[in-house]
């Protein structure tokens, strides 16, 4: 028996060549399918369910630390915080009331105009599981997936701006591609002038570039960029970034324009998934 095993071990490499070729071919097939046809959502989500324990395990210590931090905070500090939150709640309620009034008025006007009011989208809160996947991509993983109605393409927001969009989903988790990922482009407009352009990610969490603005474009440092809603992916009119630098480049066709995202990318624990309906490119705005 032992000799047989030794023998098998000695010749283990012999059959590997053919098998290796087979698995290389299989891997290349998968790569092609994923890159050109995006046909593998179902397979991916099965694997994603299988690796969920890994994601959970990795994040368990940081979640536990956060909970412990809350538990050990001093009583006075908690009271203070409570007071502050109460005030904030009051303010927020007041604002909400005003918003409700506006919504009612809006609805009334729409009815008057004869257009059917579209259903407003839903906002869902999601926790961020992992942020730093690889240094060359800006992806985050969320703790909700297909079973919560999350599907690829949905925009992700936080309290101050657009964060990104869902890239792929598993049953219990989903991946988000941030607007600063090098593979991301978001249609924006300059709020002051309405000039529409595209903002590209750079891989750095606090930098977007706007490569298609001509040298004589009316854009200044401090201008706010909002999403234009073109393309139908992101809701219209939500803040995206603020211009930090405009450098005209004489002799070149476009100026060098840089912007800083307004969303707190990589610094938040929770984000919002906006499950609105993809209808027209000029769909409902969230405001």
């Amino acid at each position: 028996m032992r000799i047989l095993r030794q023998h098998r071990r000695f010749h283990a490499a012999r059959g590997q060549g053919l098998r290796t070729l087979f698995f290389i071919a299989a891997a290349i097939t998968l790569l092609t399918l994923d890159q050109h046809f995006q046909a593998l959502h179902a397979v991916r989500s099965v694997f994603s369910a299988a690796v969920y324990p890994v994601e959970w395990l990795v994040n368990a210590p940081s979640f536990a630390l956060r909970d412990m931090g809350t538990a050990f905070q001093g009583h006075t500090k908690l009271v203070e915080e409570n007071q502050m939150l109460r005030h904030k709640l009051l303010l927020a309620r007041a604002r909400l009331e005003r918003l409700n009034a506006l919504r009612r008025e809006n609805q009334r006007l729409r009815t008057l105009l004869g257009t059917a009011a579209e259903l407003p989208g839903n906002l869902r809160i999601a926790s961020i599981l992992t942020v730093d996947l690889t240094p060359y991509r800006n992806l985050i993983t969320l703790n909700i997936g297909l079973t919560s109605g999350i599907r690829p393409g949905l925009p992700i927001l936080d309290a101050s701006g657009i964060v990104g969009q869902i890239k792929s989903t598993g049953p219990f988790s989903s991946q988000v591609i941030l607007i600063t990922d090098p593979a991301s482009a978001i249609p924006v407009e300059i709020e002051r002038t309405g000039l529409a352009t595209l903002a590209f990610g750079t891989g750095s969490l606090n930098l977007l570039t706007l490569p298609y603005l001509p040298n004589n474009a009316d854009v200044h440092r401090g201008d706010e960029l909002t999403s234009s809603g073109l393309g139908g992916r992101y809701p219209r009119g939500y803040p995206v970034a603020v211009i930090t630098q405009v450098t005209p480049r004489p002799g070149q066709r476009f100026a060098r324009v840089e912007a800083r995202p307004l969303a707190k990318l990589g610094r938040e624990h929770e984000v919002l998934v906006y499950t609105f309906r993809h209808t027209t490119p000029t769909g409902e705005s969230i405001r």
């Binding site: 290796t20 698995f23 290389i24 299989a26 891997a27 290349i28 097939t29 998968l30 790569l31 399918l33 994923d34 890159q35 593998l40 397979v43 991916r44 694997f47 994603s48 299988a50 690796v51 890994v54 994601e55 996947l133 690889t134 991509r137 992806l139 993983t141 890239k167 792929s168 598993g170 991946q175």
Partner: peptide
Amino acid sequence: LFLDVLTGSLFGAHALALT
């Protein structure tokens, strides 16, 4: 394949490399 899903790379990239 598990590594691909975990790191969000193209499906099959790490499979090919590890093979």
